[in-house]
Amino acid sequence: MKNPGFFTRWFHRMASPVWFYQISGKLLPWLWVLFAVLLVTGLYGGLVTAPADYQQGDSFRIIYVHVPAAWMSMFVYMVMAVSGAIALIWRMKLAEMVMVSCAPIGAGFTFIALVTGSLWGKPMWGAWWVWDARLTAELILLFLYLGVIGLYSAIEDKRMASRAVAILALVGIVNIPIIHYSVEWWNTLHQGATVTKFDKPSIHIDMLIPLLLMAGAFKVFFAISLLLRTRNELLERELPRQWVKQLVEEKDG
């Protein structure tokens, strides 16, 4: 039998709760530093150095929170759905924990995207809320996250709850392309793509760079939150295990 490749070894190692707990603990301090650097430089660039928009004035600056939050609302759902698929196929407990840990974080990003969108929509559209295709699909995404959280909490057997949540997450993935392409598919009020047109982005470079820095900060914050929540979920599930008892004893001692 041939020796397993790097990806196979890494995949099986990721299934080890002990290895994940150790490696995540080493990564967290570096992620906090990276997050702080990206956040400070992104906010300074977006709020101080970026020029005012010629139509929207300074009110456009809400994009430095709204757009990264909207991107992350979809990205986190994809991570949750992929983790759910891995949990269903390979019965990997760590994937289950990652999946259920994603839901509250994704719900938070989605809520921020909806609230900041409403704050921007009032002066631009004259209304806090319109039943625009993208806004409605984003609201449905929030309900999907809340449904995952509620379903997981309602079932006492956490392995069974994880399988039920994984199925729900995979079914709900159909909403992601609807959110992304709704502006192209239907005539909506929502602004079309600006940053993702990489051949010629419809945004000035002085505005674009802080936006990308903020997007990076949001992604690193997601990684930090996911590791922390997964570590807590891991300790809660593995509490009877000897390695957790030793860890508690070391901290108490």
Rank of each mutant, 00 (worst) to 15 (best):
G42L: 03
R159P: 02
I179H: 02
S225I: 06
W30S: 08
M80E: 02
F109N: 07
I89Q: 10
E96Q: 14
E156P: 06
P240E: 03
A81H: 04
I62D: 00
K245P: 05
K158Q: 07
F221D: 13
R61T: 13
A15I: 00
V98W: 15
H12L: 15
L28W: 05
L235V: 00
E249I: 01
I155D: 00
T230C: 11
I209G: 04
I62V: 08
A164N: 13
I167D: 00
M72V: 02
A81F: 03
D58P: 12
T41S: 12
I167V: 09
I178P: 05
P201Q: 12
S202T: 11
D206F: 12
Q56S: 09
A70I: 08
A15E: 10
I63S: 02
S153W: 15
T116V: 04
N3F: 11
V48C: 08
I179L: 09
K200F: 12
S202H: 06
H66A: 01
V174M: 11
A36W: 11
L119C: 13
A137I: 04
K93N: 13
L189W: 02
S202D: 10
L28P: 05
N3M: 14
I86V: 15
K219R: 12
L27P: 01
L168C: 03
Y64G: 06
T136M: 12
Q55V: 09
P68C: 05
V130W: 06
D199M: 15
P4L: 15
Q56D: 10
E249R: 02
R9L: 15
L141E: 05
L114I: 15
L34H: 01
A133W: 01
S24R: 00
W90T: 06
A50K: 03
P240T: 00
I155C: 01
D53K: 12
R231E: 04
T188I: 13
F218D: 04
M214R: 06
R241D: 07
I23L: 12
M124P: 01
G46H: 07
V220M: 11
E184P: 01
G253H: 07
L139H: 03
R61Y: 06
L141T: 09
M160G: 14
A223P: 06
R229A: 13
V76H: 05
G253S: 05
I149T: 02
K122A: 06
L31K: 05
I179T: 03
R159M: 03
A87Q: 14
R13A: 15
K158P: 07
R241A: 08
G172N: 11
G106V: 14
R231F: 01
C102Y: 09
P177S: 14
E238N: 00
P201G: 10
E250G: 10
F218G: 09
K158E: 03
K200E: 14
L139N: 05
K197M: 10
S225G: 12
W90Y: 11
S83M: 15
L34R: 04
L38K: 04
P17H: 11
E138N: 05
D252S: 13
A154C: 13
L247V: 03
I149L: 00
A87W: 10
L38S: 13
Q22E: 15
V65T: 14
